[in-house]
Design a protein around this nucleic acid. Structure first.
Lengths: 107, 107
DNA sequence: TTGACATGTGACCATTCGGTCACCTATTTT
DNA sequence: AAAATAGGTGACCGAATGGTCACATGTCAA
Protein backbone atom coordinates (compact mmCIF):
# COMPACT_ATOMS: atom_id res chain seq x y z
CA UNK A 1 0.00 0.00 0.00
CA UNK A 2 1.39 3.40 -0.97
CA UNK A 3 1.61 6.41 1.34
CA UNK A 4 -1.42 8.08 -0.17
CA UNK A 5 -3.54 4.99 0.29
CA UNK A 6 -2.67 4.93 3.97
CA UNK A 7 -3.87 8.51 4.42
CA UNK A 8 -7.28 7.87 2.88
CA UNK A 9 -7.77 4.62 4.77
CA UNK A 10 -6.83 6.42 7.96
CA UNK A 11 -9.38 9.16 7.36
CA UNK A 12 -12.15 6.67 6.58
CA UNK A 13 -12.94 5.96 10.23
CA UNK A 14 -14.97 8.39 12.40
CA UNK A 15 -13.00 7.58 15.55
CA UNK A 16 -9.74 8.45 13.82
CA UNK A 17 -11.22 11.73 12.50
CA UNK A 18 -12.30 12.56 16.04
CA UNK A 19 -8.75 11.90 17.24
CA UNK A 20 -7.48 14.35 14.62
CA UNK A 21 -10.07 16.85 15.85
CA UNK A 22 -8.79 16.44 19.40
CA UNK A 23 -5.19 16.97 18.30
CA UNK A 24 -6.22 19.89 16.11
CA UNK A 25 -7.72 21.52 19.20
CA UNK A 26 -4.65 20.73 21.32
CA UNK A 27 -1.45 18.94 20.34
CA UNK A 28 1.02 16.82 22.30
CA UNK A 29 -1.37 14.51 24.13
CA UNK A 30 -0.62 11.02 25.41
CA UNK A 31 -2.50 7.84 24.55
CA UNK A 32 -4.07 7.70 28.01
CA UNK A 33 -5.23 11.28 27.74
CA UNK A 34 -6.83 10.67 24.34
CA UNK A 35 -8.38 7.43 25.55
CA UNK A 36 -10.24 9.31 28.29
CA UNK A 37 -12.11 11.28 25.62
CA UNK A 38 -13.40 8.15 23.90
CA UNK A 39 -15.78 5.38 24.86
CA UNK A 40 -13.46 2.61 23.81
CA UNK A 41 -10.73 0.49 25.37
CA UNK A 42 -7.15 1.68 25.30
CA UNK A 43 -6.35 -0.99 22.73
CA UNK A 44 -8.86 0.33 20.27
CA UNK A 45 -7.51 3.86 20.57
CA UNK A 46 -3.94 2.59 20.29
CA UNK A 47 -4.79 0.75 17.09
CA UNK A 48 -6.34 3.88 15.61
CA UNK A 49 -3.36 6.05 16.58
CA UNK A 50 -1.09 3.51 14.95
CA UNK A 51 -3.01 3.82 11.69
CA UNK A 52 -2.85 7.62 11.84
CA UNK A 53 0.89 7.44 12.54
CA UNK A 54 1.52 5.05 9.64
CA UNK A 55 -0.31 7.52 7.41
CA UNK A 56 1.88 10.35 8.71
CA UNK A 57 -1.21 12.25 9.80
CA UNK A 58 0.06 12.06 13.35
CA UNK A 59 3.69 12.30 14.40
CA UNK A 60 4.96 11.33 17.84
CA UNK A 61 7.74 12.10 20.30
CA UNK A 62 8.68 9.94 23.25
CA UNK A 63 9.21 11.50 26.64
CA UNK A 64 10.14 8.90 29.26
CA UNK A 65 7.34 6.37 29.41
CA UNK A 66 4.94 8.73 27.67
CA UNK A 67 4.36 9.11 23.95
CA UNK A 68 3.19 12.51 22.78
CA UNK A 69 1.01 12.84 19.68
CA UNK A 70 0.99 15.75 17.22
CA UNK A 71 -1.17 16.52 14.18
CA UNK A 72 0.63 16.81 10.83
CA UNK A 73 -1.41 18.84 8.31
CA UNK A 74 0.73 18.12 5.24
CA UNK A 75 -1.10 15.00 3.98
CA UNK A 76 -4.39 16.88 4.22
CA UNK A 77 -3.01 19.65 2.09
CA UNK A 78 -1.92 17.09 -0.51
CA UNK A 79 -5.47 15.73 -0.77
CA UNK A 80 -6.67 19.24 -1.47
CA UNK A 81 -4.05 19.79 -4.15
CA UNK A 82 -4.91 16.54 -5.91
CA UNK A 83 -8.41 17.50 -7.02
CA UNK A 84 -8.51 21.27 -6.69
CA UNK A 85 -6.26 23.11 -9.10
CA UNK A 86 -5.22 26.73 -8.71
CA UNK A 87 -7.86 27.88 -11.20
CA UNK A 88 -10.89 26.31 -9.55
CA UNK A 89 -9.68 26.88 -5.99
CA UNK A 90 -11.35 30.30 -5.80
CA UNK A 91 -14.66 28.81 -6.92
CA UNK A 92 -14.56 25.97 -4.42
CA UNK A 93 -13.70 28.10 -1.41
CA UNK A 94 -16.24 30.71 -2.50
CA UNK A 95 -18.96 28.05 -2.59
CA UNK A 96 -17.96 26.78 0.83
CA UNK A 97 -18.08 30.27 2.30
CA UNK A 98 -21.40 30.98 0.64
CA UNK A 99 -22.90 27.81 2.07
CA UNK A 100 -21.60 28.64 5.56
CA UNK A 101 -23.05 32.12 5.28
CA UNK A 102 -26.47 30.87 4.23
CA UNK A 103 -26.54 28.41 7.13
CA UNK A 104 -25.61 30.96 9.77
CA UNK A 105 -28.16 33.50 8.56
CA UNK A 106 -30.79 30.75 8.84
CA UNK A 107 -30.54 30.81 12.64
CA UNK B 1 -24.31 8.10 8.37
CA UNK B 2 -23.78 11.85 8.00
CA UNK B 3 -22.68 13.61 4.80
CA UNK B 4 -19.11 13.96 5.96
CA UNK B 5 -18.82 10.28 6.74
CA UNK B 6 -19.91 9.43 3.22
CA UNK B 7 -17.17 11.59 1.71
CA UNK B 8 -14.39 9.93 3.70
CA UNK B 9 -15.72 6.44 3.05
CA UNK B 10 -15.93 7.27 -0.64
CA UNK B 11 -12.33 8.47 -0.75
CA UNK B 12 -11.08 5.37 1.07
CA UNK B 13 -11.04 3.21 -2.07
CA UNK B 14 -8.27 3.47 -4.71
CA UNK B 15 -10.64 2.73 -7.60
CA UNK B 16 -12.90 5.59 -6.56
CA UNK B 17 -9.94 7.95 -6.26
CA UNK B 18 -8.87 6.95 -9.75
CA UNK B 19 -12.38 7.72 -11.00
CA UNK B 20 -12.06 11.18 -9.47
CA UNK B 21 -8.70 11.56 -11.19
CA UNK B 22 -10.30 10.67 -14.52
CA UNK B 23 -13.10 13.19 -14.00
CA UNK B 24 -10.59 15.79 -12.80
CA UNK B 25 -8.78 15.38 -16.11
CA UNK B 26 -12.01 15.50 -18.11
CA UNK B 27 -15.57 15.93 -16.89
CA UNK B 28 -18.90 14.74 -18.28
CA UNK B 29 -18.11 11.11 -19.03
CA UNK B 30 -20.54 8.22 -19.12
CA UNK B 31 -20.38 5.02 -17.11
CA UNK B 32 -19.36 3.00 -20.17
CA UNK B 33 -16.61 5.44 -20.99
CA UNK B 34 -15.23 5.30 -17.45
CA UNK B 35 -15.55 1.53 -17.37
CA UNK B 36 -13.24 1.25 -20.37
CA UNK B 37 -10.42 2.83 -18.35
CA UNK B 38 -10.68 0.24 -15.59
CA UNK B 39 -10.03 -3.47 -15.35
CA UNK B 40 -13.28 -4.25 -13.66
CA UNK B 41 -16.80 -5.17 -14.70
CA UNK B 42 -19.35 -2.46 -15.39
CA UNK B 43 -21.14 -3.39 -12.17
CA UNK B 44 -18.12 -2.70 -10.04
CA UNK B 45 -17.60 0.71 -11.61
CA UNK B 46 -21.30 1.50 -11.25
CA UNK B 47 -21.21 0.66 -7.56
CA UNK B 48 -18.21 2.94 -7.05
CA UNK B 49 -19.84 5.81 -8.95
CA UNK B 50 -22.92 5.40 -6.80
CA UNK B 51 -20.81 5.80 -3.66
CA UNK B 52 -19.13 8.91 -5.07
CA UNK B 53 -22.50 10.34 -6.01
CA UNK B 54 -23.98 9.68 -2.56
CA UNK B 55 -21.00 11.52 -1.11
CA UNK B 56 -21.63 14.46 -3.44
CA UNK B 57 -18.11 14.13 -4.82
CA UNK B 58 -19.63 13.42 -8.21
CA UNK B 59 -22.76 15.01 -9.62
CA UNK B 60 -24.63 13.68 -12.64
CA UNK B 61 -26.89 14.81 -15.47
CA UNK B 62 -29.01 12.54 -17.61
CA UNK B 63 -28.99 12.90 -21.36
CA UNK B 64 -31.24 10.36 -23.03
CA UNK B 65 -30.05 6.92 -22.13
CA UNK B 66 -26.69 8.25 -21.00
CA UNK B 67 -25.69 9.54 -17.57
CA UNK B 68 -22.92 12.13 -17.50
CA UNK B 69 -20.61 12.39 -14.49
CA UNK B 70 -18.96 15.54 -13.15
CA UNK B 71 -16.47 16.15 -10.34
CA UNK B 72 -17.58 18.35 -7.45
CA UNK B 73 -14.61 19.85 -5.55
CA UNK B 74 -16.57 21.32 -2.64
CA UNK B 75 -16.39 18.32 -0.25
CA UNK B 76 -12.62 18.17 -0.80
CA UNK B 77 -12.29 21.80 0.18
CA UNK B 78 -14.26 21.10 3.37
CA UNK B 79 -11.82 18.37 4.39
CA UNK B 80 -8.99 20.84 3.99
CA UNK B 81 -10.76 23.46 6.08
CA UNK B 82 -11.45 21.01 8.91
CA UNK B 83 -7.83 20.44 9.93
CA UNK B 84 -5.94 23.33 8.40
CA UNK B 85 -6.75 26.71 9.85
CA UNK B 86 -5.97 30.03 8.19
CA UNK B 87 -2.86 30.50 10.35
CA UNK B 88 -1.14 27.20 9.60
CA UNK B 89 -2.24 27.05 5.96
CA UNK B 90 0.82 28.97 4.79
CA UNK B 91 3.11 26.53 6.62
CA UNK B 92 1.40 23.44 5.22
CA UNK B 93 1.43 24.59 1.62
CA UNK B 94 4.99 25.84 1.99
CA UNK B 95 6.10 22.40 3.20
CA UNK B 96 4.29 20.73 0.32
CA UNK B 97 5.95 23.01 -2.19
CA UNK B 98 9.35 22.54 -0.59
CA UNK B 99 8.99 18.76 -0.74
CA UNK B 100 7.95 18.91 -4.41
CA UNK B 101 10.91 21.13 -5.19
CA UNK B 102 13.39 18.81 -3.48
CA UNK B 103 12.02 15.82 -5.36
CA UNK B 104 12.19 17.47 -8.77
CA UNK B 105 15.74 18.72 -8.25
CA UNK B 106 16.72 15.17 -7.35
CA UNK B 107 16.24 14.05 -10.93
C1' DT C 1 -40.73 -3.27 -34.16
C1' DT C 2 -36.89 -5.66 -33.53
C1' DG C 3 -32.40 -5.58 -31.87
C1' DA C 4 -28.61 -3.27 -29.89
C1' DC C 5 -27.07 -0.17 -26.38
C1' DA C 6 -26.72 2.27 -21.70
C1' DT C 7 -27.93 1.89 -17.17
C1' DG C 8 -29.93 -0.34 -12.95
C1' DT C 9 -31.11 -4.01 -8.90
C1' DG C 10 -30.57 -7.79 -5.56
C1' DA C 11 -28.20 -11.62 -4.06
C1' DC C 12 -23.95 -13.68 -3.18
C1' DC C 13 -18.97 -14.56 -1.52
C1' DA C 14 -14.16 -13.62 -0.20
C1' DT C 15 -11.58 -10.29 2.14
C1' DT C 16 -10.80 -6.44 5.15
C1' DC C 17 -11.77 -3.74 9.24
C1' DG C 18 -13.11 -2.29 14.08
C1' DG C 19 -12.88 -3.56 18.59
C1' DT C 20 -11.68 -6.56 22.62
C1' DC C 21 -8.86 -9.50 25.45
C1' DA C 22 -4.90 -12.15 27.60
C1' DC C 23 -0.46 -11.25 28.21
C1' DC C 24 3.95 -8.53 27.98
C1' DT C 25 7.84 -4.70 28.58
C1' DA C 26 9.56 -0.28 30.16
C1' DT C 27 9.51 3.71 33.24
C1' DT C 28 8.33 6.10 37.41
C1' DT C 29 7.10 6.41 42.34
C1' DT C 30 7.05 5.04 47.18
C1' DA D 1 12.46 -3.75 45.54
C1' DA D 2 7.64 -3.56 44.98
C1' DA D 3 3.69 -1.39 43.19
C1' DA D 4 1.67 1.60 40.09
C1' DT D 5 1.70 3.74 35.61
C1' DA D 6 2.21 4.17 30.42
C1' DG D 7 2.56 1.78 26.41
C1' DG D 8 2.77 -2.52 23.24
C1' DT D 9 1.70 -7.39 20.65
C1' DG D 10 -0.87 -11.25 18.61
C1' DA D 11 -4.97 -13.69 18.20
C1' DC D 12 -9.69 -13.61 17.76
C1' DC D 13 -14.67 -12.50 16.09
C1' DG D 14 -18.69 -10.00 14.24
C1' DA D 15 -19.61 -6.43 10.80
C1' DA D 16 -18.70 -3.90 6.74
C1' DT D 17 -16.64 -3.65 2.03
C1' DG D 18 -15.25 -4.80 -2.91
C1' DG D 19 -16.36 -7.27 -6.77
C1' DT D 20 -19.20 -10.44 -9.71
C1' DC D 21 -23.31 -12.37 -11.81
C1' DA D 22 -28.24 -13.30 -13.33
C1' DC D 23 -31.67 -10.61 -14.47
C1' DA D 24 -34.39 -6.30 -15.59
C1' DT D 25 -35.72 -1.44 -17.46
C1' DG D 26 -35.44 2.37 -20.51
C1' DT D 27 -33.66 4.54 -24.98
C1' DC D 28 -32.03 4.78 -29.62
C1' DA D 29 -31.38 3.18 -34.54
C1' DA D 30 -32.46 0.44 -38.70
Amino acid sequence: MTDGDLVFKALADPTRRFLLDLLFARDGRTLTELESELEMTRFGVMKHLRVLEDADLVVTRRSGREKLHFLNPVPIRLIHDRWIDKYTERQASALVELKAELETTDE
